[in-house]
Design a protein around this nucleic acid. Sequence first.
DNA 1: CGTATCCGAAACTCAGCCGTTTCGGATATA
DNA 2: TATATCCGAAACGGCTGAGTTTCGGATACG
Lengths: 208, 208
Amino acid sequence: MGHIDLAAAEVDTPKLGRKRDHTRDPEILTAALDVLAETGYDRMTIDMVATRAKAGKATLYRRWASKAELVIDAVACMKNAGIDMANLPDTGTLRGDLVANIKPHSIQDGDRKIHVMAGLMSMISSEPGLADAVQSAIVEPRAKVNRLLLQRAIDRGEIPADSDVEKLSLLVASMAMYRTMVQRKTANREFLISVIDELLLPAVGLRP
Amino acid sequence: MGHIDLAAAEVDTPKLGRKRDHTRDPEILTAALDVLAETGYDRMTIDMVATRAKAGKATLYRRWASKAELVIDAVACMKNAGIDMANLPDTGTLRGDLVANIKPHSIQDGDRKIHVMAGLMSMISSEPGLADAVQSAIVEPRAKVNRLLLQRAIDRGEIPADSDVEKLSLLVASMAMYRTMVQRKTANREFLISVIDELLLPAVGLRP
DNA sequence: CGTATCCGAAACTCAGCCGTTTCGGATATA
DNA sequence: TATATCCGAAACGGCTGAGTTTCGGATACG
């Protein structure tokens, strides 16, 4: 038994020769997300991802045990991609903060995340780890920003203290998702601002 | 050419023997929607539908040319299932109308439609006829009700005439879809009412 | 510079599902 | 009742895609 374990350990950590090149893992994961967003989980093939990443299919299977694990890993690596929690806008008003947070990069990142989610929709209930990955990498980061901006507005007395922060923080995301998935239109800057001005701000008692 | 067309016509309308039994078509379409909502389009198989409908797979292919056509037909037949446009509530207030419209049957129907849409998400962009079927059978009927109730409120001077009826009519549907698909919670009566009271009514200047 | 390991390409196995066909039994029509 | 057609069950063919293996060439480590 000891012999077998030792041999396996040696296979896992080879001492000689070329080491595995992990520098291109991000490219592979990005390619996986692209294909996922474009074609959906079930119609996405490993060959598509390999081809787009200019890699061999065997290379992918040397790194990930299955298609599902590759996708879960790809989703997880979106976690801190499009949002820099460090320097959020602080304009002094809720509207100012929300609008300042709508940058081209932010719009593009949100659109990508929605399309990835759409591609995972059918799969998300059958694959257990996937729901968690989506929640912590796609949903939560976005909600966290809005919660923070709303809480600031409460702290400075701009909006009522009993505002339903949780529901309000999901309002823009919900409308953007519906517009993208159902209406098949882009959730562009002017749409997002209109949601803020016509729905979110009135809901907390601020008439723009 | 005429001979061929005539022969084909005769095949389509046989004169003798047993006639095709179409009484069980609704059961088959309902079974298709059930499987669709539970497993999604790509993982749904014709055998699943046939088994659930207690029919043979061949029977399904005698009626629909392909899996895609079966699904499109099933979606299309949801059109006037859960909504009776004839006798909508008319309580005299916007809130009264909206709340009165939330009946157990209506909640269940909405939940089912959201799950069907989730099952079609990945497919909806590649299959051309599907987007139209979803739009006219699932999305539009719901939106139409809300548009009507909002328009009534405008006509009686309860809410501003320049209210964005279009955006407001999609608010509840958007929040319900997000809650069901992303948060994986049920859009039950109390959730729907809280969306109305905390978001929709304040947005039109009505504080409940 | 030698060599162990990695890489990409391609061929391969295997399972699952679409769509077709066959067949014995049931059933509505004449 | 006689028969043409339908029905459900089951087997079949063909294709697609997951996952594996092989192989020549490239490459980093000693």
